[in-house]
Computed example of a mutant assay.
Amino acid sequence: MRASPCCSIAATSAALKCRSMIPGSGSSEATGTGQKREFINNRRGYMLVLKVTMLEGRSQSQKEDLIQLLSQTASRELEYPLEEIRVVIYEVSRSQWGVAGRSLACQDRRGQ
């Protein structure tokens, strides 16, 4: 699997931000490996759901690679079993994605 540095950085960053979302932690931040491991042991079968929103147009192969990369990174960084990680991809059309007050489709029509 070939991934660009941007994808790797984004996936690692997203996985690290999820540390505070471990159920049962009672805290917004885990400090130290022992404490993090205790939180994970207390989660009792909770699954981790990673949601990705992106513009439509990527190939099925690219989406499969992204799912694999995000799942493996989250499993490694959060010490979560791979079997308990879910990835959901939401694809949005250019007409439904707005930047600076206009949809991307509108910006495309105006040559910007």
Rank of each mutant, 00 (worst) to 15 (best):
M1D: 06
M1W: 02
M1G: 12
R2K: 03
R2D: 06
A3W: 08
S4P: 03
C7H: 11
S8P: 00
S8M: 12
A10I: 11
A11N: 01
T12M: 04
S13Y: 08
A14K: 08
A15G: 10
A15K: 09
K17L: 10
R19Q: 12
S20I: 00
M21V: 04
M21S: 12
I22S: 05
I22H: 04
S25W: 03
G26F: 07
G26K: 06
S28Q: 03
E29H: 10
E29K: 14
A30H: 02
T31Y: 09
T31I: 15
T31F: 13
T33H: 11
G34A: 15
Q35W: 04
Q35K: 10
K36D: 13
R37F: 02
R37K: 14
R37Q: 12
R37Y: 01
E38M: 11
F39I: 02
I40P: 00
N41V: 01
N41P: 00
N42A: 14
N42F: 02
N42D: 04
R43G: 01
R43T: 13
R43D: 15
R43M: 14
G45R: 09
G45V: 05
Y46M: 01
Y46S: 12
Y46Q: 02
L48V: 10
L48W: 04
L48H: 06
V49F: 11
K51I: 14
V52I: 14
V52A: 04
V52E: 01
T53H: 09
M54T: 10
M54R: 15
L55Q: 08
E56Q: 13
G57L: 00
G57V: 02
G57M: 01
G57A: 03
R58F: 05
R58A: 07
Q60M: 06
Q60V: 12
Q62Y: 02
K63C: 13
K63M: 15
E64T: 12
D65Y: 03
D65K: 10
D65E: 15
L66A: 12
I67T: 14
I67W: 05
Q68P: 00
L70S: 02
S71R: 08
S71T: 15
S71M: 01
S71A: 09
S71Y: 00
Q72V: 07
Q72D: 09
Q72S: 13
T73R: 03
A74F: 03
A74K: 02
S75G: 07
R76F: 08
E77T: 05
E79H: 08
Y80M: 07
Y80L: 01
Y80V: 01
Y80R: 06
P81K: 04
P81R: 04
E83P: 00
E84S: 13
E84F: 08
I85G: 03
I85A: 04
V87T: 10
V88P: 00
I89P: 01
I89A: 07
Y90A: 09
E91I: 03
V92G: 03
R94K: 11
R94Y: 05
R94A: 12
Q96T: 00
W97K: 13
W97F: 15
W97Q: 09
G98T: 10
G101F: 05
G101D: 03
R102C: 02
R102N: 09
R102T: 08
S103C: 07
S103Y: 07
S103L: 13
A105T: 04
C106N: 13
Q107Y: 01
D108Q: 13
D108L: 08
R109K: 14
R110K: 13
G111R: 00
G111Q: 01
G111S: 00
Q112C: 14
